[in-house]
Design a protein around this nucleic acid. Structure first.
Lengths: 345, 345
DNA sequence: AGTATTACCGCATACGATTGCGCGCAATCG
DNA sequence: CGATTGCGCGCAATCGTATGCGGTAATACT
């Protein structure tokens, strides 16, 4: 057990199997290939070969397969941040669907940075996969088109700013949900001074959510001072920083709409540290309904998205596209959001 | 922009570049290969080739490279559960180190299931990488030895139950930390009836932690009734279930030591739902110090591990091993734990 | 008996890149 | 001025697998 084993790694190839079974390498390939071979193979040789395969401990080399054939039996998924719970159900759903198709999944994260998103594309063109699912923050239709041209890969994306005819998309109607949440703060809770903590203003998702926020304010005849919109970076810490500067204002807001739950959680924590009561002194609404939203105190009022559903739909569409080739019709999934009233607002 | 582009994907190969640059394909390879070529190339041709590469939009095919050469420029990491925050800093650290070495990282998760751990091994032998980092729950030295024999891959593992001479390991001294935490409950807080919520008893990590728990109890002259040790599965829900059955006991415990923070968080939530005050009625201690530990109320008393440090050390060792070949000396990193007193106990 | 069919299988090449070897040519040396 | 050196590059084999095509033996058919 575990002696000098690693020194002598001999790579067993098809040729070795063929030799040991007294057949040609092609025959071994035909027996082992999942694709139904055009050439019939006798049951006898098939069993013989399978026996030898087991005896020699042969494992097919996927790189050679990918090189010769055109299938990799692998899909990739690019998320922004592995540490953000929002993505977990999505990744999980994709993995589950892939597992059913006996596909491997490779995960990458972009940290919301364009540079890393492009790096992922580069990486994927050098090491092509059969399909990818992507949550792009910076990548646009042209970037993705490039990817398709370079690799011929099937793509599914999250976010309704992707319009490419060959890319399936799933997205939540966050514009409407954001509008309703802010309106709820105004009408049901009587808030007048409502701030928002965003992320990079250039993200389409931020454009949508902050646009809805402004619209709701405007429709209620409320003004939003420039210093009421603070740019964070999705993180807990950025939520903390933002709420501190907000509460330090001469006329601080009485409610805050955060672009996601982690920001909201940071905001609550920092507000409490400053002696503020939530929601009495400052109300907080998040976005996503990550599991933590139920554990923080007060429990977070937020807008639920259904990432598992998006992931599943997208993955299924992806495999349809992989099977069907380029001529698959574009599929679009709009999955609803749901406002969840808890304790923080 | 994004027209019929995907129909005509032409794969640009080295031969195409060679033709366009009026050189042989070998020369193109020598210019593009990161390995210093034995054969000198004039600055003129080098620039010519690089220009053509850019013009044609050529991207090297990593599969062909991996097939011919023996490097994949990719490492794999297998964790148990992408949704468990404990692993995030570790993954992140590994990715960072890999990034410095211009390596790609592929992530897989096992869900704590032996079946999926083996599936990962299978997958990795079909699609070998240059190195892998693994957090094995079921895999033993023999399984890993097999992996080494089949792939020749460099391995780093988390958990001090791995003793293989060719595998670097990192681990926290959780035995000692567990003992001290339980002792603290007894001596500093005066608890007598202390329960434990574990995960699968066969996991080495559970054997260590529950062993330490029993030892601390025994050393204090305290008994642990059979019904005081409940088996969960690391999840929040299992923590909820466990605390409910614990509190339903005729003589319920006054304190609980949870095998990890997510269990502890579930336990706190369910206890509170049952009208129990934490820590007054039931004290809870967790393990890991995940970020959520600071957000739940009461804040979680727990034992911090330093997964980022483990990941970083392990990844660095991995690359040393990749560079050095099989003759790298085994490295062992014991990183300390730290007891963190907050509010839940 | 001779031909057509069928069932099985091997030969050879291609996939895209790396690399040992050798060749031509200019510069240098004896 | 012929021989040697070394620079710059091409030729061709190779990695492990998939597959079109052609070949052989056995069986069926007329």
């Amino acid at each position: 057990m575990a002696k000098e084993s690693s020194i002598q790694r001999e790579h067993v190839t098809m040729r070795d199997v063929a030799r040991a079974a007294n057949v040609s390498q092609s025959t071994v390939s035909r027996v082992l290939s999942p694709a139904p071979s055009k050439v019939p193979i006798s049951e006898e040789t098939r069993e013989k070969i399978l026996a030898v395969v087991k005896e020699l401990g042969y494992h097919p080399n996927q790189y050679a397969r990918s090189l010769r054939g055109k299938k990799t039996h692998m899909i990739g998924i690019m998320i922004a941040d592995i540490a953000n719970p929002f993505y977990h159900p999505m990744v999980r759903a994709v993995q589950d669907v892939a597992f059913q198709h006996r596909y491997d999944v490779m995960i990458a994260n972009s940290d919301h940075m364009r540079e890393k998103e492009l790096l992922f594309c580069e990486s994927i063109t050098r090491r092509p996969v059969d399909g990818i699912i992507i949550i792009p923050y910076h990548l646009n239709d042209d970037d993705l088109d490039n990817l398709i041209v370079n690799t011929g890969v099937a793509i599914g994306a999250v976010g309704n700013h992707i319009q490419h005819p060959n890319i399936d998309v799933a997205y939540a109607n966050d514009t409407r949900a954001s509008y309703e949440a802010v309106s709820w703060l105004i009408q049901q809770r009587g808030h007048q001074r409502i701030a928002m903590i965003t992320a990079d203003r250039k993200f389409p998702v931020i454009i949508r959510r902050s646009g809805a926020y402004r619209q709701a304010m405007e429709d209620a005849g409320l003004s939003v001072p420039a210093e009421y919109v603070i740019e964070g970076d999705w993180s807990v810490d950025s939520g903390k920083r933002a709420i501190r500067s907000l509460l330090a204002l001469p006329e601080p807001p009485t409610a805050v709409f955060a672009a996601n739950d982690t920001i909201a959680i940071g905001a609550i924590a920092a507000a409490q540290e400053m002696g503020c009561r939530v929601p009495e002194d400052i109300a907080v609404i998040g976005f996503d309904d990550i599991p933590d939203a139920q554990w923080v105190r007060p429990k977070l009022t937020t807008i639920a998205q259904y990432p598992a559903e998006m992931g599943q739909k997208l993955a299924q569409a992806l495999f349809e596209r992989i099977d069907a080739g380029d001529d698959a019709p574009r599929q679009v999934f709009e999955v609803p959001c749901r406002f969840i009233e808890r304790e923080s607002a």
